[in-house]
């Protein structure tokens, strides 16, 4: 038993979800100002997200809230008679993990990594791949999170990108290997064009099939076999917005970081060591900024975007979106909501 605003009647921890998970209000919760304001929340796992989106947009009384709405579906929600679109700046990033340990490509060289960053048109990426529902990245920390150092995104500068790549000694005829999962294949296809045109080299897109995802993840985390890509599109999150290096940078670049792609970086690990032992919030925030500035200056990743989180919500539901979680304590329904009219 917990003590938060809602009771959990049953939660299955297996990979396969139960058809429904029902949460009921815990009226003795200590934080009366927050809630709970709903009597019941029913998670429906028995229908697909696409079907759910159709239902929230075209009906009432079926589905009230759909998370993870794709930017391409935003307009459908906005044009709906029954639903509205909620958008929040979230603690999510999408970047390219650069294989600094590639044996036959000079990605250990900062100039080559910077060339990749200068080759990408982030403004177009935001407007076309995300329909505007993302922010351009300038490092790992989003501009709205703690410790943001105030960097500007790398500009789109194909001329300088090409020059730097040649200067770093990119081998003649060697294609750039860009890997992606199926969920970010659209972004990869857009990047493929940018990289090919800006750098003047061929780009091979490698799509990890869904059934091969687990094996690919193992290979990335275990680091026993040589990584087969030059750049891997990678989405990551944080559980809070206060001190991103503890979760974001640590996982991406630390010596023990599961997503580190290349040899450990001694200066980075020194800074993280300081960060981990700093208990003063102001000094820790300054260290966060220093760490993010370092990974930006050393161009340890192909920095892309911070996607926003999109929700389709029934018009009679006042949903409070959160940057790091799906919190429902503050959410309430109006008197016009189907459940109140029906007495459900």
């Amino acid at each position: 038993m917990g003590a938060d605003p809602l009771n959990c009647v049953w939660l299955d921890t297996r990979e396969d979800r139960t058809d429904r998970v029902v949460l009921t209000a815990f009226e003795d919760h200590w934080n009366k100002e927050r809630g709970p304001r709903l009597e019941k929340v029913i998670f429906r796992n028995d229908i697909s997200p696409a079907e759910a989106l159709d239902l929230v947009c075209t009906t009432e009384g079926q589905i009230d809230l759909v998370t993870e709405v794709a930017p391409a579906d935003a307009e459908k929600v906005q044009n709906s008679e029954y639903a509205k679109l909620e958008v929040i700046d979230s603690m999510r990033i999408l970047l390219g993990l650069i294989n600094r340990g590639a044996e036959d490509a000079p990605l250990h060289d900062k100039r080559a990594r910077k060339a990749l960053n200068l080759a990408v048109d982030r403004a177009r990426l935001v407007s076309e791949a995300f329909n505007g529902y993302a922010h351009q990245s300038a490092g790992v920390i989003p501009a709205y999170a703690g410790g943001y150092p105030g960097n500007e995104p790398y500009p789109h500068d194909p001329g300088e990108a090409k020059r730097l790549l040649q200067e770093a000694g990119w081998p003649e005829g060697r294609p750039l290997r860009l890997a992606t999962t199926t969920s970010t294949e659209g972004v990869a296809r857009m990047l493929e064009g940018d990289l090919r045109e800006s750098l003047g080299i061929d780009v091979e897109v490698m799509v990890v099939p869904d059934e091969g995802l687990l094996a690919a993840q193992h290979a990335l985390v275990e680091k026993v076999m040589a990584l087969p890509f030059d750049v891997l599109l990678h989405a990551w999150i944080d559980l809070s917005a206060d001190a991103p290096p503890a979760f974001m940078h640590h996982y991406l670049y630390s010596e023990g970081g599961p997503f580190r792609t290349g040899p450990p970086v001694a200066e980075f690990d020194r800074l993280m060591g300081q960060f981990a032992k700093e208990t003063d919030a102001e000094r820790q925030s300054a260290l966060s900024a220093e760490i993010d500035r370092f990974v930006y200056d050393e161009v340890l990743s192909l920095f892309l975007v911070a996607p926003q989180a999109l929700y389709a919500v029934n018009k009679n539901v006042n949903f409070v979106a959160h940057a790091t979680t799906l919190e429902l304590a503050e959410t309430y329904v109006t008197e016009e909501h189907w459940s109140r009219k029906n007495g459900s």
Binding site: D4, L6, V41, L328
Partner: peptide, 23 residues
Amino acid sequence: PVGTIHVVDPNALNWLFITWNTM
């Protein structure tokens, strides 16, 4: 508390969100 809502949350962290809502 009044009303009921039906939620579809395909996020892989759904288990964590439910934990945070109930614990």
